[in-house]
Simulated scan of single mutants.
Amino acid sequence: MFHMVDVTCLPSEFDCTKLPRTPCIIVCGSSPVTAEHFMISVDQTIVNGSITNFSDAFLLMFGLYYCLNISYPAALGTTLEFLQRCLFKINPDKGSKVERGSRKQAMNPKVLSMISRIADFEWRE
């Protein structure tokens, strides 16, 4: 999801062949928390090289998954699915966008469990 580069790295200088084909955030700095510049890549191409805050970069990356109808990579599937359902409230009760074989999967049980625990906690408070 995140790829770290030097603070002074420009989009034209970056070797995109090391990036995944799925949308990702290129952090210009040592940490997403302290960085002041971000870039967005999809299909090993930088599509936006001048993002100044993390929240915009994250929203753009997540939006690319939906606008381009890209399946979540298996390694990030649980995290992105949780954010999709709990933070963005997109398809909270339907199947998964996680890429697994050739057929569509039901929701990840770990995501269901965590959503249930959060809902229980919210109702008790």
Rank of each mutant, 00 (worst) to 15 (best):
M1D: 11
H3F: 15
H3T: 15
M4T: 03
V7F: 13
P11Q: 09
P11I: 02
F14V: 07
L19P: 02
R21I: 14
I26W: 03
C28R: 12
G29I: 14
P32S: 12
T34V: 12
E36T: 14
H37I: 06
F38L: 07
F38E: 06
M39A: 09
I40C: 00
V42R: 03
D43F: 06
I46Y: 01
G49Y: 09
S50K: 13
I51W: 04
I51A: 06
N53E: 06
F54R: 10
L59G: 10
M61E: 08
G63M: 01
G63Y: 06
G63N: 09
S71C: 08
Y72F: 15
Y72K: 00
A74W: 09
A75F: 09
A75L: 09
F82A: 00
Q84L: 06
L87I: 10
K89N: 14
K89M: 09
P92A: 01
D93Q: 15
K94T: 07
K94M: 02
S96M: 01
K97F: 13
E99S: 13
S102R: 08
K104G: 04
Q105W: 11
A106G: 06
P109E: 13
P109T: 13
P109S: 11
K110F: 04
K110L: 07
M114N: 05
M114Q: 08
A119W: 06
D120V: 07
F121G: 06
R124D: 11
R124S: 11
E125G: 15
